[in-house]
Design a protein around this nucleic acid. Structure first.
Length: 229
DNA sequence: TTCTGATCATTT
DNA sequence: AAATGATCAGAA
């Protein structure tokens, strides 16, 4: 497995991402000498790792952005043939304890989403993994309106957590941001608090962007491109 | 067919 | 256990 050097500038990162647009996973995996699984059932993060390695993201599972020195978070997003997202997008773990005094401004969600390099990838399961292709990269920063939507959902969900209503939170809540389980399995437990302030054990949760929201991001980009022509 | 809740691999 | 990378798959 070959490791690429990390890009030294935003322009270099985008340039490098643009060079793999249109290429298959097989071509990229061959280039960095990474073996391709038959499917993603047992390696759900494989595509993310593939793109990370190629683009030279900071390796490992640190609680940092992928390109910390550039302030950029990398996200691959599986899309169908119409360019629509097939999955929600994980943002970060939801803080179930030690969350008093956290504001939207100081939240991990805002930090992570400050600047994102989206890499659309073909994700339909009838396409063999090796044949799926990478799309055009999109560097995104939330607009004022998008940030307002995120902030509103975040506030509503965090209020429930702080009030000890974690077990009442459902993925149906939130216009653009939702909370769902995020764990190795159902046996993984972490501490939270109930409505009486008593500690309880519950499944770890994560913040996810709903598909409708990421679809808008991708779509806005398409509109920009078509307006230039 | 869509979406929520569950799950997989790896590293620290 | 918690963080990284996410998608799977049964229920609705």
């Amino acid at each position: 497995m070959k490791i690429h050097p990390r890009p030294t500038s935003e322009a270099e990162l985008i340039q490098r991402a643009a060079t793999i647009a249109g290429y298959s996973f097989k071509a990229i995996a061959t280039h960095i000498d990474l073996t391709i699984p038959n499917d993603l059932r047992r390696e759900k993060g494989w595509v993310g790792k593939l793109i990370e390695l190629y683009l030279g993201a900071d390796a490992g599972s640190k609680a940092e952005r992928d390109f910390a020195h550039l302030g950029i978070e990398l996200k691959t997003i599986p899309i169908n043939q119409l360019g629509q997202p097939l999955e929600t997008t994980f943002v970060c773990v939801a803080p179930l304890t030690a969350n008093h005094g956290i504001t939207w401004e100081s939240s991990h969600v805002k930090y992570k989403l400050n600047k994102v390099l989206w890499i659309p990838v073909e994700g339909e399961r009838d396409i063999p993994l090796a044949e799926r292709r990478v799309g055009t990269p999109i560097l995104w920063q939330p607009s004022a309106g998008e940030e307002q939507q995120l902030k509103q959902d975040w506030q509503e969900l965090m209020d429930m957590i702080v009030l000890g209503q974690i077990e009442q939170i459902t993925a149906r809540q939130g216009e653009v941001l939702q909370i769902r389980p995020k764990a190795a399995n159902g046996k993984a437990l972490t501490t939270a608090f109930n409505e009486y302030g008593e500690p309880i054990m519950t499944r770890p949760r994560g913040f996810y962007l709903k598909k409708q929201f990421t679809a808008q991001i991708l779509n806005n980009y398409l509109n920009q491109v078509t307006q230039q022509n």
